[in-house]
Amino acid sequence: MLRKALDGLTVLDFTQIAAGPTATMLMADMGARVIKVEPHEGELGRTLGPAWVGDDSALYHGFNRGKQGISLDLKHPDSVAVVRRLVLQADVLVESMRPGVMARLGLGYEALSALKPDLIYCSISAYGQQGPYADRAGVDGILQADSGLMSLIGTPGAAPSKVQAPVVDVVTGYMACMAVLAKLHARTRDGQGGHLDVSLMNSALSLQQASLSSYLCDGKLPTRIGSAAPYSAPNEAFEAADGWLMVAAYNGNRWAVLCGVLGHPEWIDDPRFVSSAQRVVNRTAMVEALTEVFRTQPVSHWLKVLYDADILCSKVADYSDLLRHPQIADNGMLVQLSDPRHGAVRVPGFPVNSREAAQTPYAPAPAKGEHSRSVLRDFAFSDVEIEALLAKDALRCPA
């Protein structure tokens, strides 16, 4: 099963907040031993709330399940020496420092690959390891803006909006995990490690494959059109009597079927609506006509009518709806972490073969330095060495 696919793999995790932690969490979900290396005060993601689970944010728990935690002060030379010893037995290192920081600490790719040539070293940054913006820091919202993604989101005339979920961070984490897995496969052939350069900017551009490809083709800037798709219609949300529903009836004969079930067969041959392309051009008129009908009945009525007619549709759900969603209940994606400190903590689980994945318990996110002693013992540090590191405050363990 996928939850054991990476058994035996050791990953050193020098990341924080969302992009890097997503990548390493996925590796932990697939069975890798992920050792999260944090500063003594803990990574920034612990502070980003509300909501809270104990003293740490729910965000931290959502991105760091299944890892072991070790607390090191990387400004201390003894801590750097610890990392260099850990690297000798590691397969992968993932870091999300600003470019150049790890090198200044003596932990850059060149230094560590000299120690371990088959090390796979994955660097996650805002703009990449080279180029005029390489030194710039950036977070999800900044990259949603700078990549053009924010220009697509919202309604005409409204203030700029962004996707509230950190989609650029998360897709960057998936890109990084995918790159590491590809490099691991290559390493089985040539025995070589390598340096992977993964950026939020490139990942944000990849999210815009459809809209950016269209602009590169015709040079026309996209405009904000709310829930609609710029390349098809109807493919957007409509207001009903008690809420909103999303309808996609642009493909094949679905437009004709929709016109029939709404009681307006005359729209089928209306020159404004005769094709998806014409409906895109005349979207305002189409939306006004459909909305007038949809507002006459509640969402539940339209969902049944449209589903029975094989029209693609959905309620525009909120998170409370998700907890009652029968498919989500069945597929095992909302999982429970058994945290001895905080009790049950619920988070989204591993998304592939999710029912099978849910059969293997998920370990919680680590407390600050929770596994400092046990990890170093596993890496052949003696108790005398560990106590010396603790005495110098190069290493910390929880009280």
Rank of each mutant, 00 (worst) to 15 (best):
G108A: 10
T223I: 13
K315R: 12
S147N: 01
L143P: 02
G193D: 12
A363K: 14
L395C: 07
A179R: 04
E38M: 09
Q278P: 01
E292H: 07
V11Y: 02
Y60R: 02
P271G: 05
T24K: 07
I268S: 08
M286T: 01
V280Y: 07
H40I: 10
D146P: 00
L262A: 03
L200P: 09
G226H: 08
V352A: 11
K183P: 00
P222Q: 08
D269R: 13
I268H: 08
E266Y: 00
L74D: 07
G100P: 05
L115Y: 04
I328P: 01
D169L: 04
K368C: 14
R279L: 01
K304W: 00
Q130G: 04
L72V: 02
F350C: 10
I386K: 13
H195L: 15
F294G: 06
G69E: 08
L44W: 10
E95P: 07
V281C: 05
D318N: 15
A367V: 09
L322Q: 06
L245G: 06
C259T: 02
R224T: 09
E288H: 04
D29K: 06
R187W: 01
R3H: 13
Y133V: 00
Q278S: 14
A358Q: 15
N253E: 13
L390N: 02
D7S: 14
G128R: 11
I17P: 00
G193Q: 11
N253C: 01
D383P: 07
C313D: 05
V34E: 01
G157T: 09
G31I: 07
A210V: 15
V247D: 04
P132G: 10
Q129F: 05
D73V: 09
P348A: 12
T47R: 14
P222S: 10
T15W: 00
N353E: 13
P298W: 02
P361Q: 10
A103I: 01
L221V: 12
P361F: 08
V94I: 09
G194P: 01
T360S: 14
R341S: 11
H301G: 00
G252F: 07
A240T: 15
G349C: 04
M175P: 00
G131M: 07
S125E: 08
L312D: 07
L74Q: 08
L119A: 04
V384I: 14
V281I: 15
V80H: 03
P39S: 12
V299L: 04
V139Y: 14
T296I: 04
P166A: 13
H325M: 03
P21H: 03
H195A: 07
T24I: 01
W302N: 06
F350W: 12
P366E: 10
D308Q: 13
R272V: 03
R396F: 07
L107H: 05
E370R: 10
N64T: 03
A365P: 09
Y319A: 13
L312M: 11
P160A: 10
R373A: 10
D146K: 13
L376C: 02
P298I: 05
G154D: 05
G138R: 06
L322Y: 12
L196Y: 03
S79Q: 05
E385A: 10
Q144R: 00
H61N: 09
V305K: 04
I142R: 02
Q359M: 11
Y109P: 02
G243T: 05
T47H: 09
R189W: 03
P166L: 10
